[in-house]
Design a protein around this nucleic acid. Structure first.
Length: 470
DNA sequence: TGAAATGTTGGGGCG
DNA sequence: ACGCCCCAACATTTC
């Protein structure tokens, strides 16, 4: 008998460890552990927690339909797993690898506890196609620039999906199972945001919809937040409610469907590139764990960031006076989702207009994002701030007005999230101050900073550090 | 996966 | 017809 320990792999299809357990053991017993870290960990977000809990419920239903009762336990994994394995007489615990340093520390404790009890522990690669030591430069070092990394990634064969867990009719021993909270408030995190459809069913619907059309227009469509041009799969990748190999296999079918049309092929290609970004930042985190605590380039730890709380709070609340920034932040606060173009714009604004450290923004995003993933979030923030691997050069500073005009040309996205500007003409919606749209009866704030001035201050701030560091 | 400043060119208005 | 200026429209450089 093998226990399959579900963590961020909440699905029965294309699950490496689960399919291996089914292949190698007579009996597979699935278990999920409600750890304290779900409640007390750093930057717990209620929306993300709700998404996870609901996806565990969906998984329990999926498993139940196949004849497997999901056992839920609460407590420390290093205590609960040996205890459950002993109760059931299991020989081993299987699970899929996680890449956050704190998860790996926990897994080391689990290994020791199981080992002491004479129970096996096997960890499988599942969430990524290639792990941190599998794609290296000729010199044997990790890549720190995306383009050559993606080239090396694409040069390799893509593995097919793993078999779905086969149904069973076996009678399982009845053991205690803890109740599954579905409302994160039960864990001390009241939900204030909406939560997208969860579980493998939710993921499958998104994938079907995306591959039926938007993927073919992705080359342009992905940049317009008012359109549904992106896959929205990120929270599912984070919880493992869909498998990467499944997505890649389906994408390959779409590519064939795209035929010879260069635009449609390009869309498929760019979507693949986005999936590779996810693995790129995952391997950066694994190979350079110091990025969790500071800049990838340590010389930038000396940057003299502002600590203006009022500015930070205005940014968080979507009250900066720059419509595209405010719309994006209000969307995040309400839904836990934010389009990637808007993540770049809001991150650039925090770091290069408000001159506030990317680390403040990184933390806030983790509190609010339904898809918040340590590697991808950290990588994205350091890219925007110009402190990371393959980062935007420090002098590449987005203009929040022209970015709005370029990527929300009619202002539909702004109008959706900034009702104060609902009646403003498209021509000035990204710079309403030029039309006197503030003060008096209007509620929309004036810009809290001047972009032109702040841009120069930002350049000076970076220059000061570069001057010293060389 | 920029934007601003600066430089160059060429057409058209005008004296 | 010619030189001069203005200013788009690009192109290049700089941050």
């Amino acid at each position: 008998m093998v226990l399959h320990w579900f963590r961020r792999d909440l699905r029965v299809a294309d699950n490496t460890a689960l399919s291996e357990a089914a292949r190698r053991a007579e009996v597979v017993v699935p278990v999920f552990i409600l750890e304290d870290a779900l409640r007390t960990g750093p930057d717990v977000g209620a929306a993300r927690l709700a998404f996870l809990l609901r996806s565990v419920r969906d998984l329990r239903d999926d498993l139940g339909r196949r004849g497997y009762p999901l056992i839920i336990r609460a407590g420390k994994s290093e205590l609960e797993l040996p205890k459950l394995a002993a109760e059931l007489g299991a020989e081993a615990v299987f699970c899929n690898q996680r890449y956050e340093p704190y998860s790996q520390a926990r897994d080391a404790r689990v290994f020791n506890a199981l080992n002491t009890a004479g129970i096996g522990f096997e960890v499988f690669k599942d969430a990524v196609v290639w792990e941190e030591r599998e794609i290296l430069t000729q010199a044997g070092n990790p890549y720190t620039v995306f383009t050559p990394y993606s080239k090396a990634w694409k040069a390799r064969p893509v593995p097919p999906p793993y078999a779905t867990l086969p149904p069973t009719t076996r009678k399982y021993p009845v053991v205690a199972s803890a109740p599954l909270p579905l409302d994160p408030a039960e864990l001390g995190h009241p939900l204030t945001q909406t939560v997208p459809a969860t579980g493998s069913a939710g993921a499958g619907k998104l994938l079907d919809d995306f591959l039926a059309g938007p993927v073919f227009a992705y080359a342009e469509g992905r940049d317009f937040p008012a359109q549904r041009g992106t896959s929205r799969l990120s929270p599912h990748f984070r919880c493992g409610t869909i498998g990467i190999r499944t997505v890649l296999a389906r994408l390959e079918l779409a590519r064939k469907q795209a035929g010879t049309d260069p635009g449609r092929r390009k869309g498929c290609e760019i979507f693949l590139t986005e999936l590779i970004w996810r693995e790129f930042y995952q391997q950066v985190l694994s190979n350079f764990p110091h990025v969790m605590k500071g800049c990838f380039r340590p010389e930038y730890d000396a940057l003299g960031w502002s600590e203006n709380r009022a500015h930070f709070e205005a940014w968080c609340a979507g009250q900066t006076g720059y419509p595209i920034v405010d719309a994006a932040m209000r969307c995040l606060n309400a839904t836990g989702e934010m389009h990637n173009r808007l993540r770049m714009i809001t991150a650039m604004f925090l770091t290069k207009d408000l001159l506030i450290s990317w680390q403040w923004g990184e933390r806030y995003f983790m509190q609010k994002l339904v898809d918040g993933d340590l590697g991808a979030n950290n990588g994205g923030w350091q890219w925007s701030a110009g402190t990371g691997t393959d980062a935007a050069p420090y002098f590449r500073i987005f203009n929040p007005v022209s970015q709005g005009q370029k990527f929300d040309p009619v202002g539909d996205f702004v109008r959706q999230w900034v009702p104060e500007l609902a009646g403003v003409d498209s021509g000035v919606i990204h710079e309403p101050w030029t039309a006197g749209i503030f003060g008096g009866g209007a509620r929309y704030p004036r810009p809290i900073v001047d972009h032109g001035e702040q841009r120069l201050k930002c350049l000076a701030m970076f220059k000061a550090v570069r001057g010293v560091g060389g």
